[in-house]
């Protein structure tokens, strides 16, 4: 345990922070992307897709790097498994942001004017939940007392996004001007966006348990 290892440890610490930055950045790109798709700004949307794909790729690499180092140097042996699971779940969140934008790109759904605002709201709630889980993870790593605060916000935003998605689906299925097929496609989009918040809440649940385990 020389100074060299201490330096490397600071290195991993920075990598962990960088990885979380990627997750949060991906969520922001996702919100911008949805906004641009609704606003029909195709070029800008494509740019966001490229950015989020690059970030997802970088995130994967970082995660693998961190995992390898944690195992090779047998760091935090007690909570190593938990940290690795946390990283993998965060990576899944990052993936779903990317996958969602690609789904827009592939399916090019026809979004009726009336649901534009709601869709924007739904996306922003999902993003808020990701932001909150990223802050929780940072607080978890730093054993910060603000941890409980952030964790609580994740559930809050998940509930909000549930409310919006239910409201949207109710409205869509009560319309007569859309075919069932169109309704089903819209429902799929709404459900998958709100699923991002669900996933964030799952991560938050696990994280709370890790935090309890980490207490002395």
């Amino acid at each position: 345990m020389s100074l060299g290892i201490l330096k490397k440890r600071i290195g991993i610490q920075k990598q962990l922070d960088d990885f979380l930055d990627q997750v949060s950045e991906a969520s922001l790109l996702f919100r911008q992307g949805v906004d641009m798709f609704i606003g029909d700004r195709t070029e800008a949307f494509d740019e966001k897709i490229e950015q989020v794909t690059a970030i997802e790729h970088r995130g994967d690499q970082m995660r693998r790097d961190i995992e390898k180092q944690l195992y090779i140097k047998t760091l935090i042996p007690e909570s190593r498994g938990d940290v690795l699971q946390l990283l993998e779940r965060m990576d899944t969140l990052l993936d779903s942001c990317k996958a969602m934008l690609w789904q827009f790109k592939i399916e090019q759904p026809d979004l009726p004017e009336e649901i534009h605002d709601d869709l924007n709201e739904l996306a922003s709630y999902s993003v808020e939940s990701i932001e909150a889980i990223v802050r929780s993870a940072r607080a978890f790593f730093r054993t910060s007392p603000e941890f409980a605060d952030h964790i609580h916000k994740v559930s809050y935003w998940e509930t909000e996004s549930d409310k919006v998605s239910t409201r949207m689906m109710m409205a869509i299925y009560r319309r007569d001007d859309l075919s069932l097929c169109h309704k089903a496609q819209l429902k799929d989009f709404i459900r998958r966006i709100s699923q991002i918040a669900d996933r964030a809440e799952d991560v938050a649940d696990r994280l709370s348990i890790y935090a309890i385990k980490r207490m002395l």
């Binding site: 345990m1 290892i5 201490l6 440890r9 600071i10 991993i12 610490q13 962990l16 760091l75 935090i76 909570s79 940290v83 978890f140 790593f141 730093r142 054993t143 910060s144 007392p145 980490r214 002395l216």
Partner: peptide, 17 residues
């Protein structure tokens, strides 16, 4: 020690070391 860990925002890796 418990008080210190709760109030000093030590990173999990710093605490580990």
């Amino acid at each position: 020690i418990a008080l210190m860990i709760r109030h000093l925002p030590l990173h999990i890796l710093t605490l580990d070391s």
